[in-house]
């Protein structure tokens, strides 16, 4: 277990360095940042001035090294738009996004676990097919469109929920449902698949032979084994939700880092864009690391092996 963890940590570190390089280089290789900052119709002198001002004329490796060195110390530069440091800006918005993703995950699990378990137990019945149908149709909907439909029905027509902003918990209901709804199908499929496999195993027969009620057989003996990959996937899904937050937060004008990212991208506020890219990518690296360790820890065969 220790060896496994250390090896996995090393990989995470290398991937972390790689994504930091990509987060930094991405904007520079996509086009001329100086022109993008100065605007399409700026004079060459103006562009040169901006190039000079932001140090964009130095070798890219030097720029990256300097940025990374500061980033490690928690300094991601200053926003070009807000009178604030990027780190402070991100930190002030991060709680909103983490709350949103957390709620989204809870909703995804509330949908996917019961449906997945029931679909597995009632395999090849209308319940199973219905759950699969919901998953297939659900995944085909564009998530921003789903969000807008919710805004229309629950916000505008019925007036139950606020349609934009992040002031109260009510503001989080629709975004979290939207986010959860799109994570549910993959979790449901994994739950169902795991349960189908586990329910035919010999130890489930043993559990029945002990005279345990169906509820105990399913929840204690089957789910405990089927849930291991699902728990790991939850961690990965949480990472996906952070990156998906850019669409959802924009739709609902929720003031998290997704919305900040969209604003920053639209305004060419590249230090903020780089900072958020780095943060979200590192979150993902850490979450997948966590998923692998969790996976191993939850399975006694690996934990004690």
């Amino acid at each position: 277990m220790l060896r496994f963890t250390l090896r996995r940590l090393l990989l995470a570190l290398v991937v972390g360095i790689a994504v930091s390089a990509i987060a930094f280089m991405l904007l520079r290789v996509s086009g001329d940042l100086a022109i993008a900052l100065a605007g399409e119709d700026a004079s060459p002198a103006e562009v040169e001035r901006i190039r000079e001002q932001y140090g964009l004329n130095r070798p890219i490796i030097v720029q990256y090294a300097e940025w990374l060195w500061r980033a490690v110390q928690g300094d991601l530069g200053r926003s070009l738009f807000y009178p604030e440091s990027v780190a402070n800006l991100i930190m002030s918005r991060l709680p909103v996004t983490l709350t949103l993703a957390g709620l989204g995950l809870v909703i995804a699990l509330l949908i996917s676990l019961p449906l997945g378990i029931i679909a597995a137990l009632r395999r090849n019945t209308w319940v199973d097919r219905g759950a699969l149908g919901i998953a297939v149709v659900g995944q085909a909907m564009p998530n921003f469109w789903f969000g807008l439909l919710m805004i229309f029905f629950f916000g505008l027509s019925l007036g139950w929920l606020p349609i934009s902003g992040s002031d109260t918990w009510m503001h989080f209901v629709m975004p979290a449902i939207t986010l959860g709804w799109f994570s549910a199908p993959v979790l449901m499929r994994l739950t169902r698949g795991g349960m189908v496999e586990v329910m035919t195993s010999d130890y489930i027969r043993t559990a029945r032979a002990k005279g345990l009620p169906g509820r105990v057989v399913v929840l204690k003996h089957a789910l405990r084994n089927a849930i291991i990959p699902v728990v790991a996937l939850c961690s990965v899904q949480f990472g996906n939700m952070l990156s998906g937050s850019v669409i959802i937060e924009t739709v609902f004008a929720l003031q998290g880092i997704g919305y900040l990212a969209w604003e920053a991208i639209s305004r060419r506020d590249f230090p903020v864009v780089q900072g958020i890219l780095l943060l979200v990518a590192l979150f993902y690296v850490i979450l997948t690391l966590l998923a692998d360790i969790l996976n191993a820890w939850l399975d006694p065969r690996i934990r004690r092996g």
Partner: peptide, 25 residues
């Protein structure tokens, strides 16, 4: 009633000891 008897007054031993115990408990 069947559940009350199973594992209590009548019990079963299976062929595959390697897979008949739950790996998670």
């Amino acid at each position: 009633r069947l559940r009350e008897l199973r594992g209590n007054r009548m019990a079963m031993i299976f062929q595959e000891p390697m897979t008949s115990l739950n790996p998670a408990w």
